[in-house]
Design a protein around this nucleic acid. Structure first.
Lengths: 73, 73
DNA sequence: ATGTCATGTAATATATAGTTTACAATATTG
DNA sequence: CAATATTGTAAACTATATATTACATGACAT
């Protein structure tokens, strides 16, 4: 469950605590999401998007060698 | 929690049952998500994306009068 | 009319996302 | 170095996403 939340957050010069406050969630939750150790809710994903000024695709779409289905698009 | 899952599914000529099977989830879950009554997991959102051949932004980004934060982008 | 098919929805149960508290580890800065 | 800020992580708890079973309804054939 890789994502680019950490990169986007640091671009904005935000700390995990600040992002957590802004998204109404705990610092631990932010940490685990950045580490890819859990599977956030869509609502939370959107909150994070708003907080760091990125879209869902920019933050959570896995472009690399990830397990995207072969017959996509 | 509006989204365009239903529209995308019908474009593909899929039934709720088929989408449910393809995403490894229950028909009821698909129904509730389409009705906007539930807040799916990122993993499930991605499964749905793959199944109907759309991106996260295309399916789950709320462009309309939704509560997107004023200072986005 | 009757028989499927696709969908909406409710009740109860289970898995897991997110909280709380707490401590450790690693920057970072004086 | 010491002091402080930032992050990683663990255990026990709470909230909620999802499963299971079940019933109801409308569409559309036959």
């Amino acid at each position: 469950m890789m994502n680019s939340v950490k990169h986007a957050r640091m671009e904005r010069g935000m700390t995990q605590v600040q992002l957590a406050e802004k998204t109404g969630v705990t610092r631990q939750t932010v940490s685990l999401i950045e580490k890819g150790k859990y599977n956030p809710t869509l609502k939370l994903c959107l909150s994070i998007c708003y907080a760091v000024g990125k879209s869902l695709d920019q933050l959570f779409w896995v472009n690399e060698g990830e397990k995207r289905e072969e017959n996509y698009r």
